[in-house]
């Protein structure tokens, strides 16, 4: 039985909405694969496109940025800037060869625990199909 490939996925979750959404998924005992590790950031606007590229370089197979719905941001405009940066980042990475499906952005509010679990499961599934990401990954 071939050992099923376990992807290594990094999720940047914004502290006010998506991180609390993740906690909500926890309290309602939703299940999603253990391939996803969450890094807490104050706002989705804090995620620098360089972090995303660094994640792929260090060996992540997929990166997911979760932020508040546009208009709900605790800091008023953080997610709008995040959206602009993400729009450029995903197209540019696809352009230099890293499959765009490996990067995803989702608006998840503090109450959408169910959506958080669903998105995590979905994303983990797509990344397992895509397999490990050797592109732009460093060989140690």
């Amino acid at each position: 039985m071939s050992v099923k490939f376990k992807p290594n996925i990094i999720c940047f979750a914004c502290n006010w909405c998506s991180y609390t959404g993740a906690d909500m998924a926890g309290t309602s005992r939703m299940k999603y694969p253990a391939t996803i590790k969450i890094i807490r950031v104050p706002c989705s606007g804090r995620v620098n496109p360089t972090f995303i590229m660094k994640a792929y370089q260090k060996g992540a197979d997929g990166v997911l940025i979760a932020g508040c719905h546009p208009g709900d941001c605790h800091y008023n405009s953080g997610n709008y800037f995040a959206k602009r940066r993400f729009l450029l980042a995903t197209r540019f990475m696809n352009y230099i060869g890293i499959d765009a499906k490996r990067l995803r952005m989702e608006w998840i509010s503090a109450a959408e625990g169910v959506k958080f679990a669903r998105v995590m499961a979905e994303f983990s599934e797509t990344i397992s199909e895509l397999g490990p990401n050797w592109r732009a990954r460093e060989e140690v």
Partner: peptide
Amino acid sequence: NIREQTSWVHSNKEDA
């Protein structure tokens, strides 16, 4: 956060 985001959301003990 190894409770809401790990133990409560995963079933396989080894992975968790």
